[in-house]
Structures are given as C-alpha cells and as structure tokens.
C-alpha cells in the first residue's frame, strides 16, 4: 500500500524481502540500479519484483531499501542492501519468482494505491 504507485511498489518490495529475511537487519552497504518495463502497471509490478529476486539470487545479497522512478509503464529502481548473512538477517526462504496470481495494482477512493501478487517460495 502507498500514497502513490511508486510508494506501493516500494512497499511491495519491502514485503517481498520480509518473506526472505528480517528487513530491519539489512544494512545499506551497496546500491544497485534496475530497469523494468511491461505492457501495463500490473505486469510492471511483477517485473519489478522479479528484477529484485534476480539481483538477490545472482549477487547473494538482500535489499532493505527501495526507491523507484516511474515513467509510464517503465521504471528505474534503486535497491540498497548487503551480502547475505544467514544468522544476522534471520533468513527464512528463497523467493523463486513473482507470479500473476492475485495480481492487482489499483487506487481506492481515498487515493491509496494497492500493489499485490503471490510470490512463489
């Protein structure tokens, strides 16, 4: 949830990380940038989360802070985090991929944005 699409996407990324590890234990030692595009906002959410999963997997890193700049149906995201430390980060499970199940990006009457989907672990 968030007051803008950007904030909802950033919060979705935090929620993804919370499935994998303790978000509060992740220090911001290194930043990386990712770019994604998709035909619509919902698929952009899936692409965004999958980009984070990919970076976690290949860099053996966890990310706790996320910032995105949205331009239509493409985004540039900045992920900040550090190498995995299983004990300190209280790791639980790897994320395999974000799916299109229960996929929804919408704005309610109060202007609150929702960004959700099921992640396979």
């Amino acid at each position: 949830m968030g007051r803008s699409v950007e904030e909802a996407f950033e919060q979705a990324a935090v929620a993804l990380t919370a499935v994998v590890a303790d978000v509060n234990a992740i220090k911001q030692r290194e930043s990386i940038e990712v770019r994604c595009e998709a035909p619509d906002l919902e698929l952009l959410l899936v692409s965004w989360l999958n980009a984070i999963i990919y970076e976690m997997a290949v860099r053996k890193m966890l990310f706790g802070t996320f910032r995105i700049v949205l331009a239509g149906c493409s985004l540039t995201g900045t992920l900040a985090g550090e190498k995995v430390d299983p004990e300190r980060h209280r790791v639980a499970v790897e994320a395999k991929g974000a799916t299109v199940t229960e996929l929804k990006v919408s704005c309610d009457q109060d202007g609150q944005w929702l960004a959700q989907c099921v992640v396979d672990v």
């Binding site: 035909p39 698929l43 899936v46 692409s47 999958n50 999963i53 990919y54 997997a57 395999k96 991929g97 974000a98 799916t99 299109v100 199940t101 996929l103 396979d120």
Partner: peptide, 23 residues
C-alpha cells in the same frame, strides 16, 4: 525459477487467448 519467470511473462503477453484468468 528464472525459466518459469521468463516464460510466464511471455505467455501472459503473447500466449493463447482467451483465458479465464491470466494466471
């Protein structure tokens, strides 16, 4: 996991239509 991710996206965008749900 990445093969599943890559092809799920391709099938959503270019796959068979109509389907009751894009999942």
């Amino acid at each position: 996991h990445q093969v599943g991710t890559d092809y799920l996206k391709s099938m959503v965008i270019q796959g068979y239509r109509p389907i009751p749900d894009r999942e």
